[in-house]
Amino acid sequence: MEPDATPGAAAGPPLSFGREPGVTLRLPCRPPYDWASLRAFLAKRAIFGVESAESGDQTYARTVCIGGRLGVVAVAFADDALHATLHGLDSSAAPEIARRLRRLFDCDADPAAITACLSRDPVLAGLVAARPGLRLPGAWDPFETGCRAILGQQISVSAAIRLAAKLVAAFGTKLPEPAGTLTHVFPMPAQLVEADVALALNMPRARGAAIRALAAAVLADPDLFAPAGTLEDAVLRFTAIRGIGPWTAQYVAMRALKLPDALPVGDVGLLRALETATGRPSPAALLARAEAWRPFRAYAAQHLWAADEVLPREE
């Protein structure tokens, strides 16, 4: 049965946006639910002007465009449920917003099944025990996630987020009035399909061309991000777009299509997290080991990324 999306009491500090009072949705999640880890993942990757997850504040907020209307959605977690407050948005948009939030925050995952599967691996068993209920972050907007994946090709997370903020400032749509640090909505495909992204962001022209190619693909096929029959189908769909390789395709399949078995083989963070005294595994060795993680390889990747982010780094 589909969990409900019912009005509830507001949670977290309210955002002031527009003249309309906020409508609040309550979205139940299967426990255990690791809100802290998921929010930390989003906070580290928050695009300035579009997202906000300030330290010390346990909410996550972002700008949105629903049915041509701009607004802000602020999310907090309490009592095994998300509490999402809508600002500047019509209450008729609540079902669509609830659907997107459930995808973004992975509300419908089965923690027991994931734990049972991944705990068969001795390394993952410890990671799963340390972070019960770790979720796989999804996507508010698949096109945005695709652009972010392209921007992140072969560079650090922090560098990719700086590029994303420049992209938003150059081509995004301004809110009618700011809501704190939230000022813009992420660009739509039509805003980027002919944009000189590489020049605006001072980055390789091939990467800018890839963003334009993705925008053109979305405009040509509104079902580009529709559910895929198999992971292989999804990877083929995205790698057919110029500038999108297997890593990017797997990452988009993982986050935008919510395919739980997606695995960006060769990702340096995954290989680093599995490093032992004898060295890091090769991508081929990772792929072979990951057979035991099916059908939840994407969740294994999320656990490994979470572990890698807390590893000490040489200065």
Score class of each variant (00 low, 15 high):
299 Y>F: 15
303 H>C: 04
165 A>E: 11
149 A>L: 00
28 P>I: 03
196 D>Y: 12
56 G>F: 02
266 G>H: 12
185 V>T: 05
53 A>L: 07
1 M>E: 14
162 R>T: 14
121 D>T: 06
58 Q>L: 03
257 L>T: 11
90 D>A: 14
305 W>P: 00
258 K>E: 13
255 R>T: 15
265 V>D: 07
135 R>D: 02
216 A>N: 10
124 L>I: 11
161 I>Q: 15
251 Y>M: 14
139 A>D: 00
104 L>R: 15
99 R>Q: 15
37 S>N: 06
12 G>P: 00
167 L>V: 08
165 A>V: 05
84 A>H: 11
257 L>A: 12
291 E>R: 15
144 E>I: 04
208 G>H: 02
55 S>D: 15
132 P>G: 12
107 C>M: 10
213 A>S: 13
282 S>Q: 10
173 T>L: 11
100 R>Y: 01
156 S>I: 03
194 E>L: 09
21 P>S: 11
287 L>Q: 14
315 E>S: 15
179 A>L: 08
245 G>V: 12
85 T>R: 15
6 T>F: 03
206 A>I: 07
141 D>T: 14
136 L>R: 13
79 D>V: 00
49 G>W: 06
235 V>Q: 01
213 A>C: 03
184 H>T: 05
35 W>A: 03
136 L>S: 04
264 P>I: 07
22 G>F: 08
153 Q>C: 06
50 V>K: 02
127 L>W: 02
160 A>C: 08
218 V>Q: 03
1 M>H: 13
85 T>M: 06
55 S>Y: 06
202 N>P: 00
260 P>I: 13
187 P>W: 02
154 Q>F: 09
251 Y>R: 08
234 A>D: 04
199 L>Q: 14
42 L>Y: 15
53 A>K: 09
214 L>P: 01
54 E>G: 09
75 V>A: 04
204 P>Q: 05
112 A>R: 15
17 F>P: 02
197 V>Y: 00
20 E>N: 07
115 T>C: 14
215 A>E: 01
281 P>A: 04
81 A>M: 00
231 L>Q: 05
56 G>H: 08
118 L>K: 02
176 P>Y: 08
267 D>N: 10
247 W>D: 05
135 R>Y: 03
188 M>I: 03
241 I>G: 00
258 K>H: 13
108 D>E: 15
148 R>A: 02
234 A>S: 14
38 L>C: 07
258 K>F: 03
29 C>E: 10
150 I>E: 00
118 L>V: 10
132 P>C: 04
307 A>T: 01
175 L>R: 01
163 L>C: 09
125 A>W: 00
227 P>M: 07
100 R>V: 04
285 A>I: 03
22 G>L: 08
211 I>T: 05
93 A>C: 14
269 G>F: 09
310 V>E: 09
169 A>F: 09
179 A>P: 03
114 I>T: 04
166 K>I: 03
221 D>C: 11
241 I>L: 06
133 G>E: 07
141 D>P: 10
111 P>F: 09
204 P>D: 08
88 G>S: 07
261 D>E: 12
278 T>V: 11
229 G>M: 01
151 L>H: 11
33 Y>R: 14
142 P>A: 13
295 P>K: 05
222 P>T: 06
193 V>Y: 07
